[in-house]
């Protein structure tokens, strides 16, 4: 008993304290979402009256097409996640495994462009998409397709970099064996590398999914029409009015928006740890 205490008590105390720290703000969000007054005021830590008014508002108010926003976010984020990983994995493979002129310079450029404060390039992106709009209204400013293209461009650097880390960690013996068997790089890629890296690709896809899901600065500039907005933009609308703040619907909406990500996260936990260890930049 005393041995158990000596060995494990501090572990539990640390665990519990940090769990309380982690949960506290989330608990407040939950309380707020059930509070009808729409304020973030904490009257008591145990809610007295529970109201579903905020949730009802999200699903019934025709001026807040919340489910459409949710769908938009999921579609845009999934698309970006899948495509950016597919395109990124191929580049990462080339950077890691193939020999070509200018490889080292390429890797360094890739790293450096990620370091540029992207927020400032916003004006330029806007100008480009505005020009695209003049000849292809389906792809330019104000369209989801245009926004997806920008996200893809933005995700590329990070993803190639991340995935390159993974590819580096896969032993080269396998593809050397394949090479001896007469496989071309394209075949090695599809038959050896992709199956090996599948879990890792899933993790990187998940990380880009979350990143895209959270993005609001570009999205609010690009997705003007109510029906085309994403959840992050829609949620900000509740508390970013000229003078008003509606915390209730914001909290309710945030909780619903978090559910899919939290579920994926918890179920892929094991993969995520290995994925992150190999080199992520969030944190």
């Amino acid at each position: 008993m005393t041995k158990w205490l000596r060995e494990n008590l501090w572990r539990h105390i640390t665990g519990i304290i940090m769990c309380v720290f982690a949960l506290f703000p989330l608990y407040l969000v939950v309380i707020t979402s059930f509070n009808e007054s729409g304020s973030l005021k904490i009257t008591s830590f145990i809610p007295t009256d529970i109201s579903f008014a905020n949730y009802k508002l999200l699903f019934t108010d025709e001026r807040i097409p919340y489910m459409t926003w949710m769908k938009n976010s999921l579609v845009i984020a999934s698309f970006v996640a899948v495509v950016s990983v597919v395109v990124g994995a191929a580049s990462a493979f080339a950077f890691s495994r193939l020999k070509f002129k200018g490889k080292k310079a390429g890797i360094q450029i890739l790293l450096l462009i990620q370091m540029f404060p992207a927020i400032l390039a916003l004006s330029a992106v806007y100008v480009i998409m505005e020009r695209v709009y003049t000849f292809a209204p389906g792809l330019g400013l104000g369209t989801q397709a245009g926004l997806i293209l920008i996200y893809l461009g933005g995700a590329m650097g990070v993803n190639i970099w991340l995935l390159k880390g993974f590819v580096d960690s896969i032993p080269t013996e396998l593809d050397e064996a394949a090479k001896i068997d007469g496989a071309t790089p394209v075949q090695t890629y599809w038959l050896i590398f992709i199956p090996l890296a599948a879990p890792v690709l899933a993790v990187v896809a998940l990380l880009s999914f979350i990143g895209t899901f959270n993005e609001f600065i570009l999205a609010r500039l690009f997705l003007v029409d109510m029906e085309s907005r994403t959840v992050a933009v829609g949620l900000q609308q509740f508390i970013g009015g000229q003078f008003s703040e509606n915390w209730g619907p914001f909290a309710a909406g945030s909780i619903i928006a978090s559910i899919p990500i939290v579920i994926i996260f918890l179920s892929l936990q094991r993969y995520i740890i290995s994925g992150l260890t190999a080199g992520s930049v969030k944190g």
């Binding site: 004006s123 806007y126 100008v127 505005e130 020009r131 709009y133 003049t134 330019g140 400013l141 104000g142 609010r220 500039l221 997705l223 003007v224 907005r229 933009v233 829609g234 900000q236 609308q237 970013g240 009015g241 000229q242």
Partner: peptide
Amino acid sequence: FANFDALKDAIDKATATT
């Protein structure tokens, strides 16, 4: 627009095209 700030952002950047 999604909110007042977004409207301001957009009009600051807008040109005759859009």
